[in-house]
């Protein structure tokens, strides 16, 4: 099976890259003294008090590769160290804060894709007409916006000017109490999903209210990016021969654009979605900080400012692995979507 061997081949190629990534991260840590490095191995608050023991146990004065071996085996056991800013092991911190970020991603991703594709198609179909110019300027402006500034401005208007209409944080105070109480079952720790599963309307509305601004802030830059890409991709597609054939068949312009042109135009957009993921990962750090939306981005930014090395590096490692896997998924998806990339012979 072509696909299976392709996946296996790609997974095998992943290993040297992941190896390099881990060596890189580890190499950074070696710039620190053994005492500072100890935080990478601590699992509990108790252990923090006994640094020399840590140094001895994990051999923090051994040669590079020995230490690397120790560290990587620790990583595989889930020990990424201790994050001082939140007083819990890094691994726990990641899983603790991940649901919030996932919540943002769940709402932002479809918004980005749908808006980007839709606007890009419309702009290309109405090329050089008012709609095209407006969306183009909008896209460039959106692409130039500093995410943090947009977030601040939105808060200023919708939280300040409109008196708390769309507040920061994940939930308002009373709702937060409710959600953490015994009356509310936490299935996923994603507030909106849990609210639905608990059939609790007020919590759902409250969570949504808190999501609107962060999701918009996160999306704007990416919508601009996808929109521009979709537009140029559509223009290229509309210039191809099969479009003339489609028109010569008597198909309506709507079908020509939406069926024939768009399918081809989506292909480059899909290949780029890996980068959109990276852009979102970046955006999440800033957005969560501004809105005090306690997800992994918020935690990472806090860790960086407080020089919590284990936290920052753990976050970087987590992201790298995730990013590499996402790219693999995107590549596989690409082979499904573009028939030309599938392997096959030529029929005579």
């Amino acid at each position: 099976m072509e696909l299976r061997s392709y996946i296996i081949r790609r997974l095998l190629l992943l290993i040297p890259v992941l190896f390099g990534v881990t060596v890189f991260i580890f190499g950074i840590t070696m710039l620190f003294s053994p005492i500072e490095r100890a935080s990478l191995y601590i699992r509990s608050a108790r252990q923090m008090g006994d640094i020399p023991a840590i140094i001895a146990t994990y051999g923090l004065d051994q040669p590079f590769w020995v230490q690397y071996g120790t560290w990587i085996s620790q990583v595989f056991h889930g020990n990424l160290g201790w994050s001082s800013v939140v007083n819990m092991p890094v691994w726990d911190a990641i899983w603790n804060f991940l649901p919030a970020t996932l919540e943002l991603a769940i709402f932002a991703t479809p918004l980005i894709i749908l808006m980007g594709v839709f606007l890009g198609t419309r702009a290309a179909a109405h090329k050089d007409r008012p709609l095209d110019h407006v969306t183009r300027v909008g896209a460039i402006a959106g692409w130039s916006l500093p995410t943090f500034w947009l977030g601040l401005m939105l808060l200023m208007v919708f939280y300040g000017l409109f008196r708390g209409l769309l507040p920061p944080d994940r939930l308002s105070f009373p709702m937060n109490l409710l959600v953490n109480s015994a009356d509310f079952v936490r299935y996923t720790r994603i507030n909106t999903i849990d609210a639905i599963l608990n059939l609790n309307g007020p919590v759902l509305l409250d969570a949504l209210r808190h999501l609107i601004l962060p999701v918009i802030t996160l999306s704007v830059v990416n919508v601009a990016f996808i929109m521009r890409l979709m537009r140029s991709s559509m223009l290229e597609s509309l210039g191809k021969g099969y479009i003339l054939t489609a028109r010569a068949k008597g198909l309506s312009e709507r079908v020509v654009v939406n069926k024939h042109a768009r399918r081809n135009a989506l292909i480059p957009v899909i290949t780029v979605s890996g980068y959109v993921f990276a852009a979102m990962a970046n955006g999440v750090v800033i957005t969560e900080t501004i809105f005090t939306f306690k997800g992994i981005g918020w935690w990472a930014a806090l860790a960086a400012t407080r020089l919590d090395i284990a936290g920052v590096l753990g976050f970087a490692l987590f992201n790298a692995v995730l990013f590499v896997l996402v790219n693999l998924v995107v590549d596989i998806l690409y082979t499904r979507v573009d028939p030309r990339v599938r392997l096959g012979g030529v029929m005579q």
């Binding site: 054939t245 028109r247 068949k249 008597g250 081809n264 573009d338």
Partner: peptide, 24 residues
């Protein structure tokens, strides 16, 4: 006009590779 195109009057182009949509 659209009901005539492809129906009563149709056209074959020079490059068959370019005339066919690669994703269908």
């Amino acid at each position: 006009m659209r009901s005539i195109r492809g129906n009563k009057i149709s056209m074959v182009f020079q490059e068959p590779g370019a005339a066919l949509n690669p994703v269908f």
